[in-house]
Write a protein that binds this DNA or RNA. Structure first.
Length: 686
DNA sequence: GACAGAAGAGTTTTT
DNA sequence: CTCTTCTGTC
């Protein structure tokens, strides 16, 4: 869309024109949020003549960043006062890496640092907990890592926890201290470090920090409700000198609390920044009135939210639909039949349809059925390419070569493919390294000197160390892709994988995976300006997305979780498995997260443009036993009159005779809810 | 070090 | 029930 202030609505224009000072844009679902952000950037450049390189827009996903950059390019081609620069549009983490690339040595790291992902982190925590300082029955490493992440995400340091009066917290503090020390020793950073270290730099080394951040005089933050504590502090640091900061978010779409997002940052923003100019975007350009009504009715049941109400001009549209069946199989068959007939009736493309669900495992049944029925689909989510064990193993070689101090990666591959360095030798190696305070790879290089590593094992260790050194040189000189291929061939990577897979199918798949990786590496080496090993690894850590080549143009039905659907829209949306304790999820309810689940339902509903269908099976098999299911509590919050035919809770399909009676009951329950809300001063659904 | 059988877990996920 | 991870044996 071209840049045109006149085509914006009043509120949108207000958000675009308020370029100076602190601006909070509360953007409801489908209210043209991205359009506002990109128009704002275009306006700054074209009308206010701000040099592009002074503009910084941060997002949470690369996808959002790319999309935004693309749209800015279209809106403001070659503008920016004749200068050739472009605004920086990237994720928080990419910004952090950019900053650390030039400054990390101030914080005691070397510039060849590597980035640890979740698996690396977990491996590290496992190692620390096995070292015996922590009782084995204390916590699962997974839970410990989670607790540790939560603490760090809140900006806490090990010292803060060590000071705590509760012993469990102090113990966590000891683990955190060990974790952070080890990371530093291995010259590795985790994702949270990509935010925390820049912040620390601002506080401890303001001169180099300003040198980098000082260039940005206009800051924009997308999906602001998803920021965590550290990100909030970082936003404050960046905006401090000029105060020109515009944050765009929606507290009703905050669905990432469980991983540290603090939607309270919206309130904090209003408190901490002077003279905040708040703009509400409530006009929805996406959905029909019935869909918006349903969304409003559900979300109004949340107590702690900024009051707002979506409205649209798309007309009333088709009523909601409710499919209820006896079994999961029948539920999904009903969905597929419905999809087929809707497609014919509306002459729609398969890519106009999305089937959403609460959790990933629910995709299995629908996938099976779609395959049987010959309906092509695109499953989004699941295990990502770069998370596959085989791919991670291959990349671990590169990580060790880039940074020989990375011992998590080192131990991952030290005996894969097999080279006779078994568990016992590895433990000894780790002990010697810890005892001497020297990197394990160095010990390996000198293995001959140690009685422990006499014979074949020592030889093998020296050989491995030599391989790493040799390839470090080769990667520095030779082409990335070819060198990588030679490396894998030399260590016998393919052979080892083939040996390990017994059936032909998985063998084929694995080999294909590694081939794909080699291709991708080669492509990077050929097309990048800086095709170094270091930048390749950085690229993988930061930008490697679920091999998402945007398949939305292809004729495929989209299958994904509601989380995955955030930010997207589809003409026709099915939300399957709408049973209570499935959606809302049982475990989330147990943890008191009903409101977050409701926001998730709100996100699901607001994805639909023209038609919205919910479905449920009355019985579900769980771990062998059969459970009876009731409709999701969220569906009972929707006025039954918005549904075509029987509404959820009416149980119409099973007992046609009682249908009218049950519908009446559902209606009464609905207005009962409305009354309750009025009494508590929340305002009722409309 | 390979393999079989037991035991345990079983939301959401980007960077 | 099903998939993953751990444990113990040869």
């Amino acid at each position: 869309m071209a840049f045109d202030l006149d085509s914006l609505n009043d509120r949108q224009r207000e958000a675009v024109l308020a370029t100076e000072g602190a601006v909070l844009v509360l953007a409801g679902a489908g209210s043209g949020k991205t359009r506002v952000i990109t128009s704002r950037i275009a306006h700054l450049m074209r009308n206010r003549k701000v040099p592009p390189e002074q503009i910084l827009a941060v997002t949470f996903t690369n996808k959002a960043a790319n999309e935004m950059a693309q749209r800015v390019k279209v809106m403001a081609p070659g503008s920016g006062n004749g200068s050739a620069g472009r605004p920086l549009i990237c994720t928080f983490h990419a910004l952090g890496v950019r900053m650390l690339r030039r400054t990390i040595q101030h914080l005691g790291y070397r510039p060849n640092f590597v980035i640890y992902d979740d698996q690396d982190q977990l491996q590290l925590v496992r190692g620390l907990m096995e070292d015996g300082v922590f009782e084995s029955d204390w916590m699962q490493p997974k839970d410990a890592l989670f607790a540790l992440q939560a603490a760090r995400g809140q900006g806490l340091a090990a010292a803060d926890l060590l000071r705590d009066e509760h012993e469990p917290d102090r113990r966590l503090g000891r683990l955190l201290a060990a974790y952070e020390d080890t990371l530093r020793r291995m010259n590795a950073v985790d994702f949270e470090d990509l935010l925390r270290l820049p912040l620390r730099l601002c506080r401890e080394h303001p001169v180099p920090a300003r040198e980098f951040l000082g260039q940005f005089r206009y800051l924009l933050v997308d999906e602001y409700q998803d920021t965590n504590h550290t990100q909030y502090d970082l936003v404050r640091e960046i905006a401090r000198p000029h105060g020109n900061v515009c944050v765009v978010g929606d507290d009703d779409q905050s669905i990432y609390r469980w991983r540290g997002a603090e939607p309270e940052n919206i309130k904090k923003f209003e408190r901490d920044f002077a003279g905040v100019h708040t703009v509400h975007l409530e006009q929805n350009y996406r959905s029909t009135d019935i869909i918006l009504k349903a969304a409003n009715q559900v979300i109004t049941h949340n107590a702690d939210r900024k009051p707002k109400r979506l409205w649209g001009r798309q007309g009333e549209g088709a009523p909601l639909e409710w499919l209820e069946a006896d079994s999961e199989r029948q539920e999904l068959e009903a969905v597929v039949n419905h999809l087929r007939s809707l497609r014919l009736r509306r002459d729609a493309k398969l890519s106009d349809f999305a089937i959403l669900y609460r959790s990933n495992h629910q995709s299995r049944g629908i996938e099976e059925l779609l395959r049987e029925e010959g309906i092509p689909y695109n499953l989004v989510g699941g295990t990502r390419f770069y998370d596959r064990r085989e791919v991670k193993d291959a990349l671990a070689y590169l990580k060790v070569i880039a940074n020989p101090d990375d011992e998590v990666s080192l131990f991952r591959i030290v005996n894969f493919p097999r080279r006779g360095i078994g568990r016992t030798s590895q433990t000894k190696l780790a002990d010697v390294a810890a005892h001497q305070g020297r990197p394990a790879l160095q010990i390996m290089a000198e293995a001959g000197r140690y009685a422990d590593f006499a014979g074949a094992t020592g030889q093998s260790m020296q050989h491995f160390a030599e391989l790493v050194t040799r390839y470090r040189r080769r990667f520095a000189e030779g082409p990335l892709g070819a060198t990588f291929r030679e490396l894998l061939a030399e260590v016998g990577f393919h052979r080892a994988l083939e040996k390990e897979k017994t059936d032909a199918k998985s063998r084929e798949k694995t080999v294909g995976l590694i081939y794909e990786l080699e291709q991708a590496t080669d492509h990077f080496g050929r097309t990048r300006e800086e095709p170094s090993l270091k930048s390749y690894l950085e690229h993988i850590a930061l930008f490697a997305m679920p091999q998402d080549t945007d398949e939305r143009d292809k004729p495929l039905v989209t299958l994904m979780t509601v989380h995955g659907a955030k930010g997207l829209e589809f003409p026709y949306v099915y939300v399957i498995g709408m049973a209570d304790e499935v959606f809302p999820n049982k475990r989330a309810l147990d943890e008191g997260q009903e409101e977050e689940e409701r926001r998730l339902a709100y996100v699901a509903i607001t994805r639909a443009r023209r038609a919205l269908v919910f479905s449920m099976a009355r019985a579900r098999k769980r771990y062998g036993e059969t459970l009876r299911q009731r409709p999701s509590r969220f569906l009972l919050e929707i006025d039954p009159a918005l549904f075509a035919g029987p509404a959820p809770g009416a149980a119409g399909a099973a007992h046609p005779g009682h249908q009218e009676q049950k519908t009446k009951e559902a209606r009464e329950r609905f207005f009962e809810n409305v009354r309750k809300l009025r009494e508590t001063g929340q305002g009722g659904p409309g």
